[in-house]
């Protein structure tokens, strides 16, 4: 009984995604059944669309920089959280983790108000990056907390006793041990930034990111099969990235000698 329900639920979860390849290869601009023949012309159209390539480039730029900055900030915060005690710790971490539970429209509007009305800045990809670092950092911290928690402090102590400095200990002992966590945090932050729409919609200037560009395409029925083709490629890429992330996580657990308890994030 329960098993049947769970399988039905999985079917519900996968229903929209299964449709993507069906309509990406369907030879009709009308997105409805019955299907009318196989074509690859929508994929060919992706290949020649200059605006799309520009938007993709913008998104990769934003996601690349945002994820690196978020993980650097996340490393500092997670390390401070797991290893040290200091006054105001709970309040500080509470504020840093707040974007996890704040509706994104609030982050978007508040940054828009400050950037445009108070400082008079021009919106650009950098305003999007600033906001994406803010929302990716809590995810990076959540992952890195787990990495630092499974790190045995006696290893660092041993390294310092054996004559390494604090800095070289961090580079030679700590960093390699938390590396799988760093890779996972980078991947998650990159994916979140790449997929984020509403903040980019508010804060992007004349350069659209990929989701903002897709949003503009959704208004033109003729282009919808092209969006389906694009979506199919994106799904394949994210499944590959997730598989890599999961493999990397298991490797990290094996290295730290912890039993796999399951649980992405």
């Amino acid at each position: 009984m329960l098993r049947v329900y769970v399988i039905a639920f999985l079917a519900f979860l996968y229903a929209p995604i299964v449709l993507l390849p069906l309509f990406a290869f369907n030879d009709s601009t009308v997105i409805a059944f019955p299907l009318s023949g196989v074509t690859t012309k929508w994929f060919a159209e992706l290949w020649t669309n200059k605006e799309l390539h520009k938007a993709l480039g913008n998104s990769l730029f934003v996601a690349g920089i945002s994820s690196v900055l978020a993980v650097v900030l996340g490393l500092a915060a997670a390390r401070a959280n797991v290893r040290y005690r200091f006054p105001g710790k709970a309040a500080a971490l509470g504020l840093i983790m707040l974007p996890l539970v704040l509706p994104e429209i609030i982050v978007a509007t508040s940054l828009l108000v400050v950037a445009v009305r108070f400082f008079g800045w021009n919106l650009s990809l950098w305003t999007v990056i600033a906001a994406h670092v803010l929302i990716c950092t809590p995810f990076a911290i959540a992952i890195l907390n787990a990495s630092f928690q499974s790190l045995d402090p006696s290893m660092e102590e041993a390294s310092i006793d054996l004559g390494e400095t604090r800095l070289s200990t961090f580079r030679l002992v700590t960093l390699p041990l938390v590396m799988p966590g760093i890779v996972a945090a980078l991947l998650i932050s990159f994916t979140i930034s790449l997929d984020e729409f509403i903040i980019a919609f508010f804060l992007t200037g004349s350069d659209p990111t990929l989701p903002v560009y897709i949003w503009s395409l959704l208004r033109f029925p003729r282009l919808i099969p092209v969006v389906m083709a694009l979506g199919t490629i994106l799904v394949i890429i994210s499944i590959l990235m997730l598989t890599f992330a999961e493999w990397n996580r298991r490797r990290g657990l094996a290295r730290a000698g912890v039993k796999d308890t399951g649980g992405f994030l």
């Binding site: 979860l13 997929d195 729409f197 979506g231 994106l234 990235m241 997730l242």
Partner: peptide
């Protein structure tokens, strides 16, 4: 369970 949710939210 998580795979479908790492595909584009908009799509």
């Amino acid at each position: 369970i998580t795979i479908p949710f790492w595909t584009s939210y908009l799509l």
